Computed example of a mutant assay.
Amino acid sequence: MIEILQQYGHALLWSDGYRFTGLAITLWLLVSSVVMGGILAVFLAVARVSPLPWLRFPVWLFTYIFRGTPLYVQLLVFYSGMYSLDFIRGTEFLNTFFRSGLNCTVLALTLNTCAYTTEIFAGFIRGVPSGEIEAARAYGFTWFKLYRCIILPSALRSAIPAYSNEVILMLHSTALAFTATVPDVLKIARDINAATYQPFYAFGIAAVIYLMISFVLIGLFKQAEKRWLRHVKPQ
């Protein structure tokens, strides 16, 4: 294992003439998809619980499709399927975008985590105590102020434990990036295995890297729970 790290560690963990390492690519996929998907999910969750059917139904359809199909299939559709369409190849921006495996991977991961996160946030929005909402309305809060000051802060705080699981699952999902030839941790581990014929060490190192990232993420979410969910901890 030491020899593998000495020979290929620059590609996995540290830079040595490489623009990005496998670890950097994995973290970029995770952070970019979680941030963009999470921000979009906040707005979609509000629409998901809307009493207006024309606003609620498209969001339900979006979450149904992306939660009902495998992420692997979604990645293949974006990376291989979209580029086969004539109007994609005929549009300069879309042609350039879908030719990049990294762009397709980020898009698939973002939309997938957005669908799951939307349902998580929507569930906690529905769980906001009605007494808080009635009190805010009694004070004359507008719909926008009600969501900004009461509903969303309460729902997003309560959603931290469930959302942490989604982030960890999304970290694991980044391992599918090798499908689009993105040089993430698993793709480089596969290349190391092909060069050394030592799958235990090659994939074992990749597993340790994912465990280390998971350990850091779990610690960060534990700190977030201690800070924002202190009021619901048992005495």
Rank of each mutant, 00 (worst) to 15 (best):
E3I: 10
I4P: 04
I4W: 03
Q6L: 13
Q7L: 15
H10W: 06
A11E: 06
A11N: 06
L12R: 15
S15D: 08
G22P: 01
L23T: 01
I25E: 08
S33F: 02
S33C: 09
I39R: 09
A41P: 13
L44N: 11
A45L: 12
P51K: 14
P53F: 02
V59H: 02
T63D: 03
F66G: 01
R67G: 09
T69M: 00
T69Y: 02
Q74W: 02
Q74A: 15
Q74L: 08
L76G: 00
F78N: 06
S80W: 00
G81M: 02
M82C: 05
S84Y: 12
F87E: 12
N95P: 02
N95G: 01
T96C: 11
S100K: 09
N103I: 12
A108M: 03
L109C: 05
L111H: 00
C114M: 15
C114W: 09
Y116L: 12
Y116I: 11
T117R: 01
I120D: 07
S130Q: 10
A135W: 00
R137A: 09
Y139D: 15
F144L: 09
Y147F: 07
Y147I: 03
R148M: 03
C149S: 13
I150Q: 11
I151V: 15
L152G: 13
L152T: 15
A155F: 00
S158L: 04
A159M: 10
I160G: 05
P161K: 13
A162K: 03
Y163R: 11
S164C: 10
N165H: 05
N165Q: 11
E166I: 07
V167I: 08
L169P: 08
L169N: 13
M170K: 04
M170L: 09
L171C: 08
H172G: 15
H172D: 15
H172L: 14
A177I: 08
V182R: 06
V182K: 00
I188K: 13
A189H: 14
Q198K: 15
P199G: 15
P199L: 05
F203S: 06
G204Y: 12
I205D: 05
I205C: 10
V208M: 05
L211F: 10
M212F: 14
L217G: 09
I218N: 08
G219L: 09
K222V: 12
K226Q: 09
H231N: 07
Q235I: 11
Q235F: 14
